[in-house]
Amino acid sequence: MAEQVALSRTQVCGILREELFQGDAFHQSDTHIFIIMGASGDLAKKKIYPTIWWLFRDGLLPENTFIVGYARSRLTVADIRKQSEPFFKATPEEKLKLEDFFARNSYVAGQYDDAASYQRLNSHMNALHLGSQANRLFYLALPPTVYEAVTKNIHESCMSQIGWNRIIVEKPFGRDLQSSDRLSNHISSLFREDQIYRIDHYLGKEMVQNLMVLRFANRIFGPIWNRDNIACVILTFKEPFGTEGRGGYFDEFGIIRDVMQNHLLQMLCLVAMEKPASTNSDDVRDEKVKVLKCISEVQANNVVLGQYVGNPDGEGEATKGYLDDPTVPRGSTTATFAAVVLYVENERWDGVPFILRCGKALNERKAEVRLQFHDVAGDIFHQQCKRNELVIRVQPNEAVYTKMMTKKPGMFFNPEESELDLTYGNRYKNVKLPDAYERLILDVFCGSQMHFVRSDELREAWRIFTPLLHQIELEKPKPIPYIYGSRGPTEADELMKRVGFQYEGTYKWVNP
């Protein structure tokens, strides 16, 4: 592979701008107003304001973009700056750019259920340069409990009458099928589907988006991507930290609602779906819905739930269990780990287990898709061969690698495990991989909904998990304890083995 010439960040961002501006969906010269509902909250200060700053800094926003914060707290732009700027990672050389960014910011205080507050917000936006005809993007960085009041008031008082209007809704989209349907029906009564952007930030990850290209742009994968060759698929999300004093919020939802029903299920769809007619948003989402419709409700015998306990040999936070978090209700049975087996009941995947695993306070930070292939028929190497695996590593250190057998150097035919490896950090030294939120917010500006969740996708996802969630809430089974920093409950490994996964433990990928 030829040595790549190092590029400056300015040059890299210039390439990104060229890609972005050559499309006809990006209205570079139009006025846009980006409204952050819930501007005083954690999500706004840690993710949304920093993301908008990065896009502005790199010249990736339309030229005439204004940012308006809205929340109940009586704040000023200076207050917003004070709480969000520490997350910007701005350099001293960017000081003038930073001043320009905050000059485009404003803030309006108001209630979430008060019509007069929204009329005041609308008047404020109209007073901005060309504000009355601007395109408006409303980001709901809010708890779902206020979605209905907020969307109703936005629709009645704050819509642009000339430009387009788009609304970005953060997960969780309800707690179960019934609450999700209620919320979807409410929002759909106010906005068209092409105006609604239900954001799952995992769909903005580079390697998640790469799944489609790997599958449908490489001839070698087509013939082997089926039940005849693939023994099982494992989708993993692991965090090495616990709730760390923020367990009160987590306890309301648990690990299945927080990660599995959305992030992991979306990745499953991209692995299992048929080739779409095109890369058009609805063509892709149509195929994802077909996959979900082929999955039956989760069966309790295919589920393992766990909850982390303190590690007596650990240090600091590792010595504390979930129930030691003062914000967690006493005696909570909320799971911090889950392993679930699903089956896609169609011709391509009949009988292939899709194993979804996620948890907190585990032994490493990792998100990946792992396809394990069947054993080689007619073994001539005296059971020395391990199964081939194709691994798409989402985070950290984005990579695609194939675990395969090669001859060990020497005189004899002794096979050993090795890999074919594409590590993004080595291959793409001159490429700026956008943060997931950067990519998705740019998608909203461009009107691309491919990486957002459609209402029928959402409904099918909740259909699969709601009976299990209701059973857990009714019966309150005690989750299996696992030690902070471990791989999780051993019962999860036993479940995976029972459905056909072979864990060798003899080879570990190392970032080159």
Rank of each mutant, 00 (worst) to 15 (best):
A6I: 12
L7Q: 15
S8R: 10
R9S: 13
Q11E: 15
Q11N: 15
E18T: 08
E18C: 07
L20S: 07
L20Q: 10
Q22C: 09
Q22Y: 14
Q22F: 14
Q22N: 15
D24E: 11
A25F: 13
A25P: 14
F26N: 10
Q28H: 10
Q28L: 09
D30E: 15
T31I: 10
F34N: 00
I35F: 05
I36F: 00
M37D: 01
M37F: 13
G38Q: 00
S40V: 03
S40A: 00
G41L: 01
G41E: 00
D42P: 04
D42S: 05
L43D: 02
L43P: 02
K45T: 13
K45H: 14
K45R: 15
K47G: 00
I48E: 01
P50R: 10
T51S: 08
T51D: 04
I52W: 01
W53M: 00
W54N: 10
D58A: 08
L61R: 01
L61S: 00
P62D: 05
N64G: 08
N64D: 12
T65D: 05
I67S: 01
I67E: 01
I67T: 02
I67P: 02
I67N: 00
Y70D: 04
Y70G: 03
R72D: 03
R72P: 02
R74T: 09
R74M: 11
T76L: 09
V77G: 08
V77F: 13
D79F: 06
D79T: 10
I80E: 00
R81H: 07
R81I: 10
K82E: 11
Q83T: 11
S84P: 03
P86Q: 13
F87D: 06
F87P: 06
F87C: 07
F88E: 03
F88M: 13
A90N: 12
A90R: 07
A90W: 12
A90T: 15
T91D: 09
T91H: 12
P92N: 14
L98S: 03
E99L: 06
E99I: 08
F101K: 00
A103V: 08
A103T: 12
R104L: 11
R104A: 08
N105H: 13
V108R: 06
V108G: 02
A109D: 12
Q111M: 10
A115N: 13
A115I: 12
S117I: 05
S123R: 15
H124Y: 13
L128P: 10
L130F: 12
L130Q: 15
S132K: 14
Q133T: 11
Q133V: 13
Q133E: 10
A134N: 15
A134W: 05
N135F: 05
N135W: 04
L137I: 12
L137S: 07
L137G: 08
L137F: 12
F138Q: 02
Y139G: 03
Y139N: 06
L140A: 08
P144T: 00
T145W: 02
T145H: 06
T145S: 13
Y147W: 04
Y147V: 02
E148F: 09
A149V: 12
V150D: 04
V150C: 12
V150A: 09
V150P: 05
T151A: 12
E156V: 14
E156C: 11
S157F: 13
M159W: 10
M159K: 15
S160P: 07
W164S: 07
V169L: 08
F173H: 05
F173A: 05
D176Y: 01
Q178E: 10
S179V: 02
D181W: 06
R182T: 14
R182N: 15
H186K: 14
S188E: 12
S189Y: 10
S189L: 12
L190N: 10
F191I: 06
R192F: 10
E193P: 00
I196G: 04
I196E: 03
R198Y: 07
D200P: 01
H201Y: 01
Y202G: 03
Y202V: 01
L203N: 05
G204N: 01
G204E: 02
M207C: 05
V208K: 03
N210I: 00
N210M: 03
M212G: 03
V213C: 11
F216A: 04
F216T: 02
A217H: 01
F221I: 08
G222Y: 10
I224W: 04
R227C: 09
D228L: 08
N229P: 00
N229C: 09
I230H: 04
C232D: 00
T236W: 00
T236M: 05
K238C: 04
G242A: 07
G242T: 05
E244Q: 10
G245Y: 10
G247T: 06
F250T: 02
D251T: 06
E252Q: 15
G254S: 07
G254L: 03
I255T: 05
I255H: 04
I256Y: 00
I256E: 03
